[in-house]
């Protein structure tokens, strides 16, 4: 094995992969949230559709998006690998357990699995239809005609679809918990722990997880109410 492979496959290396990919996915969340908030603009989906079209056609973004898929897969694969090894390190569980750690930090795999299911369904709902459904209506805003993604989203968050709306909102809660540990944890993995800055990182992590979760969750709710 090369030294790179050896390093990355060590227990610390695997953690580095988790932290690196995790933080990248955090930056994606910011972009995604800013884009999605345009759904709330009262312009009948114009800016959202322009944004969606831009994101799917810009070559640079396209490259990044392949990176994104890769990172999601890598993040999940390494997580599964780690979980199996960690389970092997503690084959028999305690009868009673009261250890002092947060529930989120102990449940990252569970939360992550739920998120992966969510991402799959989310992509089936929107991404797949946007890319492969040729029956989608087209709109034009003085530009070339583009697929009307807003229409699908609007329909998704309409009355009668409360089950899915609930699923989306709960998934954001899951995301929030996942981030509440993951964000600050990544910094610790990178070795960034300092009595001056760690409290700031922790505060930022908590704020980040609340803002992201709330930001995403509020969209289906508001769209439903409107």
């Amino acid at each position: 094995m090369s030294w790179v492979a050896k390093t990355l496959s060590s227990s610390l290396g695997k953690k580095l992969l988790m932290a690196g990919t995790g933080l990248f996915l955090c930056t994606f969340l910011i972009v995604h949230l800013i884009g999605n908030l345009q759904l709330l603009k009262e312009d009948n989906g114009q800016s959202f559709n322009i944004y969606a079209s831009f994101m799917t056609h810009n070559p640079l973004i396209k490259v990044i998006s392949y990176g994104l898929y890769f990172f999601i897969i890598l993040h999940s694969a390494v997580a599964i690998w780690l979980t199996i090894l960690n389970k092997k390190a503690r084959p028999a569980d305690y009868a009673v357990s009261n250890t002092s750690s947060t529930w989120a930090s102990r449940s990252m795999m569970l939360l992550g699995t739920m998120l992966l299911i969510f991402i799959g369904l989310h992509m089936v709902h929107f991404w797949a239809r946007y890319h492969f459904d040729n029956g989608l209506s087209l709109v034009s805003y003085g530009t070339e005609p583009m697929k009307n993604l807003y229409e699908i989203v609007d329909a998704m968050y309409d009355r009668g679809n409360e089950g899915w709306i609930g699923f989306y909102v709960i998934s954001q809660l899951v995301l929030g918990f996942h981030l509440s540990h993951g964000f600050a944890s990544a910094f610790q993995t990178f070795g960034l722990n300092h009595r001056k800055y760690t409290p700031i990182i922790k505060g930022a992590g908590l704020t980040f997880s609340i803002v992201i979760a709330l930001g995403f969750a509020i969209i289906p709710i508001l769209m439903y109410l409107n």
């Binding site: 227990s11 390190a89 250890t99 947060t102 540990h181």
Partner: peptide, 28 residues
């Protein structure tokens, strides 16, 4: 065959000598 660290912090909280997580960061 020890597991990997997932930064839950239980180790430091339960350590009878209060060894801090800062040392894990330094190790990293």
């Amino acid at each position: 065959g020890f597991g990997a660290c997932t930064n839950t912090g239980a180790c430091s909280a339960e350590c009878p000598k209060g060894i801090s997580l800062e040392h894990i960061a330094r190790l990293n």
